[in-house]
Each structure stands twice: as structure tokens, then as C-alpha cells.
Simulated assay, not measured.
Amino acid sequence: MTHSEGPGGHPATPTMLPLFPLRTVAFPGVHLPLHIFEPRYRQLTLDLITEVVPDRLFGVVTIADPTVQEVEDLAHVHPTGCATRLREARRLPDGRFDIVVTGHRRFRLVDIDAETTPYLRGTVEWVDDEHVPDGAEDAASRLADACRVAHRRYCSVAWESDSWRSPPPDTPSETLAYQVISDCLLPLSDRRELLEERHPLRRLRLAYHLLRREAAFVSELGAVPPSQHEADETLLRPNPN
């Protein structure tokens, strides 16, 4: 089991977070729209809005078995998740919510509490990146440039419009892989692999290969996926809970 470390290399103190099991993967630094209709997650949303939940943070974990109707223990979800922070919320007349959250930090789930609150809570250990050795700046820059080229290529063949945009030039190399891959439709297994990769350079390399592979598939099949970057400005395509 991989443990996160706090300052000085000491094991980090476990943290309790509300949990939202979904059939998707949240990435640090990437916006995710959600449509909230279950009563327990309506309550979670209210607790986030009113900051009953500290820092408006909750954890998104990926459901491991598509046949599972009710997540109750660790075996039902993948252990690596992403804490997300509520960014925007719109309450609908019938009590449902459309919200946008932003990925904050990866964690490893070590325990689930299904009794204390209407929604799940989990004990998590934060998972940070491995250290990149001094002198690796040139390699990181080359990989970042290659990822941006692969991202432009993918978007040019996958999208019918030219409304997509590249990540800002000042996007840190640690989060660039998440940014470029968020525009790409991928199997959950690929998204999980990207989230679980702790080395920034290996993560950039993985994103580069995934973008090239998907661009080739789209070119061959002529399939056009929807744009995901529009979550920055709109709540129009939320994922249901």
C-alpha cells in the first residue's frame, strides 16, 4: 500500500472526507459538472454550500463494479480518488442541484463510514507526486510541448468546431497531463491509470500516448466526442449522481 507523506517525509495524518461514488474519474485542477438528485447528495450539497463540510471539499471515488447499486465498503470502489472543491452551485425549483467542482488533491481511501451521516464518509490518506530530480526541467519541458501538440492534434480531429483551447501557458507540468486528457473521451481504466501515476514525467508521457492513440481512433472511425472544456463556463452537461 502506498502511503502519502507530510512535511519532512513523515506519514500524513488521515483525513475524513464526505464521499461521492461515481462512474467517472476526477482529476486535480480539472472542473467536473454534476447533476445532484439523490436526497443524500442534496444534503451533501447543502452542507458544502453552508460550509458544514470544511473547505467545501468532498472526495470523488470511482465505482469499481458497474453492477453495484449501493456502495457500502472498500471493495465497491477503486482506492485512489480525488478530493474536489465546490466551485459553483445552482439550485433547481424541485430541490435538485447543478454544480461544478474542481479537482483538488489525490487520496487513497482506507476506510468507509456509511452510518454517521446520510452520505458516505471516508478516511483518506493524501497521495502526492514523487519528487522530480534536479536537472529534469528540460525533459519536463519537452514532454509538456509534446503533450500540447498531441492535444491540438486530438482536438482538431475530434471536434467539429474550433471552440476548444489549449491549457494556459503557465499550467504547471504537474497538472498539464490532467488538463489535456480531460478533453479526451477515454475508458475509465485509462483515466484511473493517469490519476494513479505519481511521477509527473511518466504522467505526461502517458497522456501523450493516450492522446495520440485516441486521435488515431477518431481519425479512422470518424467518431466525434463532446467537448469537456466547457465546464469552465457552463453547467449544461452535468454528470448525474
Rank of each mutant, 00 (worst) to 15 (best):
S156E: 03
I63A: 11
P225Q: 09
Y119N: 06
V71W: 02
T175P: 01
F20L: 15
A140H: 02
P168G: 08
T13P: 00
T62N: 13
L74R: 09
L32K: 13
G29Y: 06
L185D: 15
D162K: 05
T45N: 08
Q69H: 07
P39F: 04
H76W: 04
E137K: 00
H31I: 08
T15P: 00
E196I: 05
S4R: 02
S166H: 11
G81E: 02
R142I: 08
R165V: 10
M16V: 08
T24F: 04
S141L: 11
Q43A: 12
R213I: 06
D183I: 07
R90D: 04
L57M: 11
R90E: 07
D170V: 08
E51A: 15
R202N: 13
V30E: 06
Q228Y: 05
A158W: 01
A146G: 15
E137I: 09
W126D: 08
D190A: 15
H209K: 14
P238Y: 04
D98A: 05
A146P: 15
L57V: 13
E174C: 11
T45Y: 01
F37S: 14
P54F: 01
P7S: 08
V110Q: 02
Y119G: 00
T171W: 00
G81D: 03
P28I: 02
A114R: 13
R108Q: 09
D183N: 08
E220S: 12
C82P: 05
V180N: 00
P240F: 00
L74A: 12
R23N: 09
D113N: 04
D138W: 06
I112N: 01
T62W: 11
P21T: 10
V52N: 14
L211P: 06
E125N: 11
H104W: 05
E130L: 02
D170L: 08
A231E: 02
P79F: 01
A158I: 09
V101R: 08
E233V: 12
D134M: 11
L44D: 00
C184N: 06
C184K: 13
D232S: 12
R152M: 14
A83H: 03
